[in-house]
Simulated scan of single mutants.
Amino acid sequence: PAVREAVPPSCRLLLDSGIRGGTDVLKALALGADGVLLGRPVLWGLAADGAEGVSRVLGLLAAELRSALELSGCGTPADAPWLTTLGAGR
Rank of each mutant, 00 (worst) to 15 (best):
P1F: 02
A2P: 05
A2S: 08
V3N: 01
V3L: 15
R4A: 13
R4V: 04
R4D: 03
R4C: 05
E5A: 13
E5H: 01
A6S: 03
A6V: 04
P8A: 02
S10Q: 00
S10C: 01
C11T: 15
C11E: 03
C11H: 03
R12S: 02
R12C: 02
L13Y: 03
L14M: 01
D16P: 03
S17R: 03
S17Y: 11
S17D: 07
G18P: 07
G18S: 07
G18N: 06
I19L: 12
I19F: 12
I19C: 06
I19N: 00
I19W: 00
R20H: 08
R20W: 10
G21A: 14
G21R: 15
G21N: 15
G21E: 14
G22S: 14
T23N: 13
D24T: 03
V25S: 08
K27P: 08
K27T: 06
K27A: 05
K27F: 06
A28D: 02
L29R: 03
L29A: 12
A30Y: 05
A30G: 07
L31D: 03
L31H: 09
G32P: 00
A33E: 02
A33L: 00
D34G: 00
G35P: 01
L37E: 05
L38V: 14
G39T: 05
R40C: 09
R40Q: 14
P41R: 11
P41Q: 08
V42Q: 08
V42N: 04
V42E: 04
L43R: 12
W44L: 12
W44K: 10
L46F: 06
L46C: 06
A47W: 08
A47I: 09
A48W: 11
A48Y: 08
A48R: 12
D49G: 15
D49Q: 11
D49M: 09
G50F: 04
G50L: 07
A51V: 13
A51N: 11
A51K: 09
E52D: 14
E52N: 14
G53C: 12
V54H: 05
V54W: 11
V54G: 06
S55I: 06
S55L: 13
V57H: 07
V57N: 14
V57I: 15
L58F: 11
L58W: 12
G59Q: 13
L60I: 14
L61R: 07
A62G: 08
A62R: 13
A63F: 11
A63K: 11
A63Q: 14
E64D: 14
E64Q: 15
L65V: 01
R66N: 11
A68R: 09
A68D: 14
L69F: 09
L69I: 12
L71R: 15
L71H: 14
S72Q: 12
G73W: 10
G73A: 08
C74Q: 04
C74P: 14
T76F: 10
T76V: 09
P77N: 00
A78Y: 07
A78L: 15
D79G: 11
D79C: 05
D79M: 07
A80W: 08
A80Y: 02
A80D: 10
P81Q: 00
W82S: 08
W82L: 09
W82E: 10
L83R: 01
L83N: 04
L83K: 02
L83S: 07
L83W: 00
L83D: 13
T84D: 09
T85W: 10
T85S: 13
G87F: 02
A88V: 02
G89S: 01
R90N: 03
R90V: 02
